[in-house]
Each structure stands twice: as C-alpha cells, then as structure tokens.
Design a protein around this nucleic acid. Structure first.
Lengths: 219, 219
DNA sequence: AGCTGTCGTTGCTCTGGCGCAATGATCGTA
DNA sequence: TACGATCATTGCGCCAGAGCAACGACAGCT
C-alpha cells in the first residue's frame, strides 16, 4: 500500500475508515478531466484507466491504476481540476477522501504526506521517461516497453505464459503508446507469428518475456 | 516567488538566508541526471536548461528555468536521483537547501510544503500536456507552442517585437519539441520570410505573436 | 585579416508509420 | 442460430518529417 508505507498496521483501519468506500461498475467514469477535483482515490480492488483527450477528441492513456495505487492526489489542494479522466475497467472498489479529511490525516500521520510526495515524484519521473521514449524510440520498442510495464502491473502466470489480466484491445495499446491501432495490430500479429506472445481479442499473453524485453531494450 | 507565496514578507529573509547562495558560470552544470539528489535549488538570477539524455545520447529539453522558479524538489526525499541535468545558460545565481534544512523550513512554515506540492502538481500537468501534444500535434504546431511558452517566460519587449531573451539555437528548439534541427530551421526560416518572426543566430524575436498563437492553436 | 569552429539554410532522398478499405473473427443479444 | 456490433488483420498508397550533403553566415581567436 504505497500510501501507508512506514505506518504501523495498528493505524491502518482508522486511516482507511476515515475515507468513503465506493464501488464503481465496469465502464463507468469515476471522475472527468477538467472537473474540480473534490476527492482523491485509492484503488482497493479492480482497475482504472486514466486518459486525456486532445482538442480533436483523440484519446491517450496516461496509465492504468490497479489495487493499492492512488490517484487524483491533486484533490488535496484547493481549486484544482482533475488532469485526466478515470474509467473503471471492471467492477472496482475504491476508498476516497475529501480535501479536509486527507489534510487532517496528513497532519496526524506525517508519513502519509511524505508517501504522497514520493508517489507524486514517481509520477513525474514516469511521465518524463515516457516523454523521452516517445521522442526518441520507434513504435515497436515503445509497444514492447508498454507490454513489459503492463506485465509487471497486471501479469498473471498461466501455463501458456504471463497473461496481462485486463481487457486490452489493440486500440488501448495504441492509445497507451501513441500510435494507431493498425500499427499496434501489425506488430502484435507479427509477434504472435513468432510465438513471442499469444494475442486474443482484448487479451495478450506473453510467452517469451525475455524476447519482448530485448525488443524493449531496457537498460 | 512560487515557493514563498502566502508567507509574510517579514519571514522571507530568514527562509532565503537558511539556504546557501551560489553562482554558476555560463555553460556549467549545476547537477547531473542520475546523481543522488542532495539539494534543491531556487533560481534568483539567470537561467537553467533542464535536459535528459536517452541511451543513444540524444538530448531532450524538459524545460527552461528562470528567476523565482524552483527545481530538484525531489531532493527533499531521501535516496532520490536527480531526474535530469541542469546547465546554466549564463551566469546564474541560485539559493539551495539540503534535505534537513528544507524539511525544517516546511515544518516551521507549512505553506512552503503546500507551495511545493502546488509546484509539483503543476509540473505533472505540464509534462502530461506536452506528452499529449507530442502524441497528437504536428511539428509546426508544437514549435509555435514552444515559442509561445518561451515568450511568456523570457519575452522582452523591443521595438521589433517580443524577443526571447535566452540563447536559443535551432538545435535547442528541436530538442525542446522533439524534432530535428533541420525541421526547426525550415519552419523558422519560413516564418521569417512571412515576417512572423525575426530569427538571428541563437535568437528569436516574435513580431506577430497573434499569428504564432494561431498556428499554436491554443484553446 | 585570416582561420577555425559553430550555427543556420536548403535541395534531395528515403522511410516509418498513418489511414483507408475490405474482410474475417468473436461477442452479446434476441 | 441468426444478426448486428465491436474488435482484429492486412494489402495498399501516401506523406510528414528525418537525415545527408553542401554551402553560407557569423563569432571568436590569434
């Protein structure tokens, strides 16, 4: 639990209970880009997709958010807008806090504030790195890196390989690494033929992680 | 002064004096990407260029940092690395604080912590927006937006127009909006012929800001 | 003044990847 | 089980922009 790192387990219930537990149905929107940020959210179960739209209505995926991850931290400050839209991929449980409650918590447990800073810095690092990637790496490499990222976040071992356990269309992959669904499809189907992955409708299983990693050229 | 917003002027000297004032010569490096972050910096006079390198050694510019702006906030947390390299464009004066001092300050003046959060959230917003831009807008538009940004940050009124008052080569512009210096040169020289700008060696003056703004297509 | 090195410009070529169109595969629903 | 809707695949043409090469302009140094 990123937010509670370093805090004695005894206090966890108090902290979590001070928020409101809600459940969002699959494909429902939790908050919209541009709305005034009222609450920040911790995902307990399920998954969110965080996206932004440009003026022409093209969607890009900022990231996926799974259990134990926090989002909309910006809600702790006043008069801020949500910088992106969050949509539930499946039935998703979250705990949310409004500004006052979260600030009180941070005052009582300063580690929460530190952890939040830590989360936020990691976020910056992440976007900046992906920005660098987008500037300088070709699509194939970006897709490979995206699969590696998703594998680490959502990978489930199966007898076929590591399955990325969220609904993941070619369009989603394209939106996540800024390409077209045509290109995403072409590359995935190529990798499928080479047996690096098994690709089904809205689902990818990685059978040769090391090979994908080589294409990603990490480090 | 972003960092001191909302804090009584009486306390400013104490806060600023608790840091160390240093001067960096033009073209000298203040900190390197990847080094352990020891201090965070407030620019008083002059300017910094913040860059990242990819594996192949290609440079991208994250942003320029001018007076009253803060950088390397990440240094308040332990064991963090500088996420980018900062180089002085000209002789630049900064005030810097180490982790302990800054944390003490934040404890004594909680507004500093709030302001820092605010700065950091603005940073995320910024990168995410530029990421969206890079994904979806053509080069010409990105260059126009970059010029608008630099104009707001470094614009000086002259009789010719608004001059961007930092050394700014075509290569710099290219690194800032992820294109090649060839393309940057072609576009700037086109705009020069249309008298939207006056472009000299390492210097750009915008004579028709509204036209550039139209190309940037802001809002 | 002349030399050297950096920066800027521009014609040319080449290609990564976009987007259309057509088709096939699979899902949910009645 | 049949049908519409969404998702995936692939051949094809096209073009924005990268990169090379060659040259010009200007700055700083001796």
């Amino acid at each position: 639990m990123d937010l509670l790192k370093g805090i004695d387990r005894v206090h966890h219930p108090e902290i979590l209970d001070s928020g409101i537990r809600t459940s969002i149905k699959a494909k429902k929107i939790l908050f919209h880009e541009g709305d005034i940020a009222q609450r920040c959210y911790l995902v307990i179960k399920g998954s969110l997709k965080l996206t932004k739209l440009n003026e022409q209505g093209r969607e890009i995926i900022i990231r996926y958010i799974g259990p134990t991850e926090l989002t909309a931290e910006v809600a702790v400050l006043k008069e801020k807008k949500y910088p992106a839209t969050a949509e539930a991929l499946k039935k998703t449980d979250v705990i949310s806090w409004d500004k006052q409650t979260m600030l009180q918590l941070m005052r009582k447990y300063p580690d929460i504030a530190i952890n939040m800073l830590d989360i936020v810095f990691k976020r910056i690092d992440d976007v900046q790195f992906r920005y660098l990637e987008l500037s300088t790496e070709p699509v194939e490499q970006r897709i490979a890196r995206t699969l590696m990222r998703l594998m680490r976040q959502y990978g489930k071992k199966t007898e076929e390989g590591v399955c990325i356990d969220i609904p993941l269309s070619r369009q989603n992959i394209a939106d996540y690494c800024s390409t077209s669904h045509y290109t995403a499809s072409r590359i995935l189907s190529l990798w499928g033929k080479r047996s690096l992955i098994i690709s089904r409708r809205e689902q990818v299983t990685i059978t040769k992680p090391h090979k994908i990693r080589m294409i990603a050229d990490e480090e």
